[in-house]
Amino acid sequence: MNNKENSNLKDYLSKLLKKKIREDGRKPFDYRKISVETGILSQANGSARVKLGDTEVLAGVKIGAGTPYPDGPADGTLMVNSELSPIASDRFESGPPSPASIELSRVIDRAIRESGTIDVSKLCIKSGEKVWMVFVDVYPINDDGNLFDIGLIAAMAALKNARMPKYDEKTEQVNHRELTKDKLPINEEPVMCTFGKLDGEIFVDSTEREELVMDSRLSIGITKKGNICAMQKGGEGTITSSEMMDMIKKAQELSKDLRKNL
């Protein structure tokens, strides 16, 4: 976010925001149009392709079997990973995961994990020896901003779409070619609202151009009950505590509509 280099754009977007309008004609708290497709990939246990305006994300779930961690011998494991592949934007680079992609993975992971979305105690095959391991991978195809909110929707849609593979008791192997009718034990549906702040103006669902110049952002994960399950502040700017409380209130409102996409 080099604001000196983009001072004209920043000035323009902030003037519009002061009139409660965005570059694409939206109001500050409008989301772009969301569409969700699920069950589109045959190799994944569950999959989803989600669009938010021009931003597009693919998410897939793979379920395998492995040894449990010593501190939870009867608990399955969940891992969320995201990769900012250079296919989705000129700004992404090949190579080891960037700090931005690690942050995205971890924020989505936290929202799912901390809300207790998956009941890992139900993912035990044989206590102390074998448990189900659930991997969720989030892959942006086109980045026009707000990968956090849409990444979580994609991950949740793929998890809800997933079916368990068959476990062969005799060979103690997972048969990846045969899926059962069983779904994952899902208890919760967290969604996330990410707010941007530019010259004191607050808005949601930022585009790539807005992300280029905004001062700070706050992502808030909201559970079905309206509780908060994850937060992450980003950007080199600041937010006040009253702004934060306003954002939480707004997130609680907006989360209801977002959850309709699951």
């Binding site: 990939l41 190799q43 693919l58 897939g60 793979k62 395998g64 990769e83 991978d137």
Partner: peptide, 10 residues
């Protein structure tokens, strides 16, 4: 590249 969920084993 093959994305992680494109194959039968992750």
């Amino acid at each position: 590249s093959m994305i992680p969920f494109s194959t039968s084993e992750r």
